[in-house]
């Protein structure tokens, strides 16, 4: 695949998926996240941006050859190696399974729990408690799966690991305090293994794990 | 890929994606959706089901070789041909883009609008009005994309078409009455083309388009 530009705002966990994939594939990826290259809320509302990316959403990728792509999973997939995508049909299928798991089982409750602690959403006690239960259920499934596995699919990092790690970032940083995450040692081990891979570190930097569960920030 | 069994409840649009893909690939797919093969709410809570499919959700696929897979997009992908998945890296990326578009831009507002009309959820006027606006926005994007295209990606049916069609089924059958869908002629043309493909027809049967927008079913 060709080199290109990834339009995004800074510290966008969705963009991290594509950026980490590019670290593995060696694709030269320019990240346009600050003025003058990209101003979120302005650049992505301009006609020429919307011509290429009709939803105006980021991350959005434009190859140096003009190829345009939106939806973060599609971009990460495009910038990946064959190994990241899965070297057999069954591996590819399992990778897609976990990528979809991240979107459907992790992101909704993780966001519902974390956003009020970041002060970007109203706090609702019932919604937060329900989100916590969903997160516990999800972590239990992951923990059982990772009982005898180093990575989610196969013996090496794949897009499954990249996607699920990026989807768990906010809760590991904001709310999964040590006592809360203690029942999921396999997930903690796997998460630590991944974020310490050089390709993850190059994008995420040092990930500081939650020490005390953040509460609603009014 | 091997033949296998798809566990689901009947008339599950998520399962249709996999079933249509199997029509194209010729994979022999047993659909277990009724007793005694499968009783939704019972079979999927049994320990041996949860061993294979830890979320207990359907559709769930088990190959005759024992290979287990959940998440409908992963199953549809696994049961597809290379042509359905995209014959070039760029085509594959665009297909993934539209598959994710379906999950993020179609399903949330479609569910919010349609569920009350099916008696699945309580009616909320504000949520319904917001959902209608989001559906209009989404249909506009699709309509513009399909202005000069017969299919979403390339010159033939791909997983993109299968996924987006199945995701639009509820709204085309329940709420997109003729006046509401009139501003989106390209989408209507494309939708009609797809549902009349033999492989779609074999799974969906005759799709009766909405004649009058369904209202809240108490």
């Amino acid at each position: 695949m060709a080199a290109g530009t990834l339009y995004t705002y800074a510290e966008n966990w969705r963009a991290y998926k594509a950026q980490i994939a590019a670290q593995y594939s060696g694709v030269h990826l320019k990240v346009a996240s600050t003025p003058p290259a990209f101003t979120f809320g302005q650049t992505n509302r301009l006609p020429n941006f919307l011509n290429s990316f009709p939803l105006g959403k980021v991350p959005a990728f434009q190859g140096d050859d003009g190829f345009c792509l939106f939806e973060s999973n599609a971009i990460a997939h495009y910038l990946s190696t064959d190994a990241l995508r899965g070297s057999t049909p069954q591996a590819s299928a399992h990778i897609l399974q976990w990528v979809n798991f991240a979107d459907s089982e992790i992101i909704p409750p993780a966001s519902a729990w974390v956003f009020p602690t970041l002060g970007i959403m109203q706090f609702n006690k019932q919604a937060t408690e329900q989100a916590k239960e969903e997160v516990k259920r999800m972590l239990l499934v992951l923990n059982q799966h990772l009982n005898t596995r180093t990575f989610l699919v196969g013996e090496r990092v794949t897009l499954a690991d990249i996607t699920v790690v990026c989807s768990l970032l906010w809760i590991y940083k904001q709310v999964l305090e040590p006592a809360f995450r203690e029942p999921y040692p396999n997930v903690n081990r796997w998460f630590g293994t991944c974020i310490n891979q050089p390709q993850f570190k190059a994008v995420l930097g040092e990930v500081k794990l939650c020490e005390k569960m953040a509460q609603f920030d009014a | 890929m091997a033949a296998g069994t798809l566990y689901t409840y009947a008339e599950n649009w998520r399962a249709y994606k996999a079933q249509i893909a199997a029509q194209y690939s010729g994979v022999h797919l047993k659909v277990a959706s009724t007793p005694p093969a499968f009783t939704f709410g019972q079979t999927n809570r049994l320990p041996n089901f949860l061993n294979s499919f830890p979320l207990g959700k359907v559709p769930a696929f088990q190959g005759d070789d024992g290979f287990c897979l959940f998440e409908s997009n992963a199953i549809a992908h696994y049961l597809s041909t290379d042509a359905l998945r995209g014959s070039t890296p760029q085509a594959s990326a665009h297909i993934l883009q539209w598959v994710n578009f379906a999950d993020s831009e179609i399903i949330p507002p479609a569910s919010a609008w349609v569920f009350p009309t099916l008696g699945i959820m309580q009616f909320n006027k504000q949520a319904t009005e917001q959902a209608k606006e989001e559906v209009k926005r989404m249909l506009l994007v699709l309509n513009q994309h399909l202005n000069t295209r017969t299919f979403l990606v390339g010159e033939r049916v791909t997983l993109a078409d299968i996924t987006v069609v199945c995701s639009l089924l509820w709204i085309y059958k329940q709420v997109l009455e003729p006046a509401f869908r009139e501003p989106y002629p390209n989408v209507n043309r494309w939708f009609g083309t797809c549902i009349n493909q033999p492989q779609f027809k074999a799974v969906l049967g005759e799709v009766k388009l909405c004649e009058k927008m369904a209202q809240f079913d108490a």
Partner: peptide, 30 residues
């Protein structure tokens, strides 16, 4: 980054919809 996160489209209600759908189809399937 946090401010822009507020603009993200997240289906917060998804678990609620999944649950409603599950119950509906469980009832429908007896």
């Amino acid at each position: 980054g946090v401010d822009f996160l507020a603009h993200e489209r997240i289906w917060f209600d998804k678990p609620r919809y999944d649950e409603a759908e599950r119950r509906f189809y469980e009832r429908k399937n007896g």
